[in-house]
Amino acid sequence: MIAAPAPGATWQHRHVLDVDVFSAADIDLVMRTADEMKEILARPIPKVPALRGTSVTIIFWEASTRTRVSFEVAAKNLSADVVNIAAGTSSVVKGESLVDTIRTVEALGADMIVMRHSVSGAPYLAAEVFGGPVLNGGDGWHGHPTQALLDLYTMRARLGDVAGRKVVILGDILHSRVARSNIWTLTAMGADLWLCGPTTLLRGFDAWATRWADGRAAPGHGRFTVTSDIDAALRDAEVVMALRLQRERMDAGLLPSLREYSARFGLTRERLAAARPDALVMHPGPMNEGVEIAADVAVLDRSVILDQVANGVAVRMALLYLLSGGHPEGMSGG
């Protein structure tokens, strides 16, 4: 089901805000570019001058270590100048203007912005204001495009084409930007996608899966399946991705307790036995071992959780490179 990339396919996107606007050919171009970055990463000195003189500003309004560091390593591997700004969540609440922050960063010479924000859609506002490319490192519940692309990259590295393969995303779908972005990429590439979790954490997704699918096969509109039946979801699965469950969900009355969640939806060896014997185990991190994933599952040979981390650098390098190449005028060097 993977559409062959058009000969000489080129990158058309000014920003990476989400993957809903990516065609299968776009996704394939990212994958192939990431392959090249993997080769670079395998060298003794994994560094190329592609973004020399380009200033990449990384602004995180929400705490994160792995995504921020992954972007930083990726940018530095491409020889970009990296500026890190920890904006903190408090400034959102206090009403410190995102628009002012972006304008300030631009005046300070940023050529590209990588951002994470707790409010869905915030990168679209940044992209409206900023003169150069914006990469979304996660916004609210909405999107996490680089995560979805590195997840796909990881699956393809192990399985080849994902078309027709059963991929299960398990857990707190409602609050998950990882799940949302993965829906677009995995359905675009023809995977047999299943979303599984407690019904309180699936609200709206069945309507997304069924109401607009009605047999149309437009890219990004292949059916996916939504269920609370974990046994049905895991049966013959080839990929199982568990999502982090946050304690706030209990406080909000969405779940009775962590213990009950773990008993009903935790990914254990027993449950995983229903999947294909070689099924991949994934997690976008950070993990709550013993809650959504058992500690002994996370370290199985077929757990590719650390692959995800390593591939994240390659995929982010690919995206930074594609964005800079598509927009040489944004590369003036700051």
Binding site: G121, W141, R203, G204, F205, W212
Partner: peptide, 16 residues
């Protein structure tokens, strides 16, 4: 709440 609870809010990640 940020938007009508339905397919669009599910897709955009908005509180319904």
């Amino acid at each position: 709440a940020e938007g009508h609870e339905g397919v669009v809010s599910a897709i955009l990640g908005l509180k319904g």
